[in-house]
Design a protein around this nucleic acid. Structure first.
Length: 515
RNA sequence: AGACUGUUAGUGUAAUUCGAAACACGCCUGAUUUUCAUUCAGGUAAUACGGGUUCAAAUCCCGUACAGUCUACCA
């Protein structure tokens, strides 16, 4: 399928209108993988031709996301490059000449219709049960340089009347292109609208800017979401009319990411509704103050997010599921990208994250988790934190689980598991537990192993039964029935803390029974 | 309404030129564990529907249904 030898240059071209959606991250990922796989160049281009939708902070959000995921562009606004600028608003001056070129070639025309007139046209069509199209069939009835007299047009132009430039689509053409994901796709030109190329403010629309930039930046492959498939014939026509068809990039349209339940594509609302992130990083809308949760803040490792995303619409054809970025680059191919939309599955995302946490070394985990300790106002030595991480690492599915599951390593128990206390604590058994505490107090040195043998010996010697004693032992120290070896926990806590916790716990248990 | 794209267990995906529907997540059972998690051993469940072509169809063809995307001076 590699048709020519020109070097691979791909771009990720988001609009800075808000936080990058997780689907956008996947598009960036596939572009990145494809570029790296073929020794090509990955470019970040900001498509900000719509000034009304500009959002403060969106551009840096995009950059930060790419950095967090480990897919840095080689050319961008920040980095520069031989084909800059990389922001469309800074390229404004370039686009008009191409619109003019099309105008001269008779492939485009001026249109003077006001937005009211266009609305009217649409409503009329709607009333007739169809959707309006400004194109081959209707352009004769509209106010444009095709329908108006030459004098009228000149007069309007001279008077400075606002105008747009629209593409003049020829009737009866067949547009065929090879999509790397979907194969041969065919459209009839009569179905294509005379899209606006240059807006009345002089800014190009997406369509013009995109084609001009891709051409000028020598983009070899356009890898983007499926929502662009219907406008691709328009783009092909643009390449054709501009005389660039022989260097036109190859297209690949990626399947959409769908809602976990119901139908439609994944949206911010799904995240709110089901309590999972749909954005890579936290985002706060600067104007509304609205916030959105990110995978990063939710305690996901970037490696896990990348791995998970890679599998949403692609698979290597083997049974391997855990892929580092290097592995992905090695195995990725657009030919193995799926055609059907992929449903977002948060359970699977969590599974990936858990795998990556388990794989992490205690030292790495400690680094990731330290901010949580600090945020709760505690300090710990690296070695102690690492030991705790070793104890907890198989029990965390996200980093945020660390504090939730292990806070008792740093502070007093907040709450005792009521069921266990109710079932296992008997007032008349108090002496047994007091003796247990004495036993523990005599353990020296206070290692997990020593505590375990002594405590178990005590239980066995007095035929008390593990099930009657150990739950109270655990709950007294940690408050919960979940967690790592309680003897290791005790050792780490230190004798002094352990004895103190027994004391307060037993008092609380007694009180709960009497009260 | 039209154009385009799609449809394999609940979910993500496999299945060389038609040739036993497989893997993972989830869920359930059991083992291990003082508990939870991990690990291990099992189990669960699918080719949207209807026609054709063929010795043989998830795979090719036709139709139907359903779904999605697009049809902005948004991208």
């Amino acid at each position: 399928m590699s048709q020519n030898n020109k070097s691979v240059r791909v771009r990720f071209a988001p609009s800075p209108t808000g936080p990058l959606h997780i689907g956008g991250v996947r598009t960036a990922l596939y572009n990145y993988l494809f570029a790296k796989k073929h020794g090509g160049t990955f470019i970040l281009r900001i498509e900000d031709t719509d000034q009304t939708r500009f959002t403060e902070g969106a551009e840096s959000y995009i950059e930060e996301t790419l950095e967090w995921c480990g897919m840095l562009p080689q050319e961008s606004t920040k980095l520069g490059g031989d084909f800059g600028p990389y922001k469309q608003s800074e390229r404004k001056a370039m686009y008009k000449q191409y619109a003019d070129q099309l105008l001269e070639a008779g492939k485009a025309y001026y249109a003077f219709d006001t937005s009211e007139e266009l609305v009217e046209m649409r409503e009329a069509a709607k009333a007739a049960g169809s959707v309006a199209k400004y194109g081959i069939a209707s352009r004769g009835q509209m106010k444009n340089s095709l329908a108006l007299s030459a004098e009228d047009v000149q007069e309007r132009l001279d008077s400075g009347a606002p105008y747009v430039i629209r593409l003049k689509v020829n009737s009866g053409e067949t547009v065929v292109f090879e999509d790397m994901v979907r194969g041969l796709v065919r459209f009839q030109s009569d179905e294509i609208d005379d899209k606006i190329l240059l807006k009345s403010d002089g800014m190009p629309t997406y369509h013009l800017a995109n084609i001009v930039d891709d051409h000028l930046m020598q983009i070899s492959h356009v890898i983007r979401g499926e929502e662009w498939l219907p406008s691709t014939p328009l783009h092909v026509l643009l390449y054709r009319y501009l005389g660039w068809e022989d260097t036109m990039p190859t297209f690949a349209h990626l399947p959409l990411i769908l809602k976990p339940v119901g139908s439609g594509k994944l949206s911010k609302r799904d995240g709110d509704k089901h309590g999972f992130p749909v954005f890579p990083l936290d985002w706060k809308n600067p104007t509304t103050g609205e916030t959105a949760m990110g995978f990063r803040e939710r305690g996901f490792l970037p490696e896990a997010v990348v791995n998970f995303l890679a599998f949403l619409g692609w698979n290597p054809g083997t049974e391997q599921e855990l892929f580092s970025m290097e592995d992905l680059i090695e195995s990725f191919s657009l030919e193995r990208v799926n055609k059907a939309g992929a449903r977002f599955n948060f359970d699977k995302a969590k599974w990936f994250n858990q795998q990556y946490i388990i794989q992490s070394s205690d030292a790495d985990l400690a680094k990731m988790v330290r901010p949580q300790v600090a945020a709760n106002g505690h300090e710990v030595e690296d070695s102690a934190l690492e030991t705790i991480c070793g104890l907890l690492n198989e029990r965390m599915t996200t980093l945020s689980d660390f504090w939730e599951q292990g806070y008792y390593f740093f502070e007093d128990v907040k709450e005792y598991d009521r069921k266990t206390v109710k079932k296992k604590w008997k007032l008349d058994k108090r002496p047994i537990f007091d003796t247990l505490v004495e036993t523990v107090a005599n353990v020296e040195p206070f290692t997990g192993e020593n505590i375990e043998t002594q405590v178990k010996a005590y239980i066995n010697d007095n035929q008390l039964g593990f099930g009657n004693i150990l739950p109270i032992f655990r709950v007294s120290l940690t408050g919960t029935m979940k967690g790592p070896s309680i003897f290791d926990v005790a050792s780490l806590l230190g004798k002094e803390t352990v004895l103190k916790r027994f004391e307060t716990a037993f008092a609380a248990f007694d009180a709960s029974k009497q009260g």
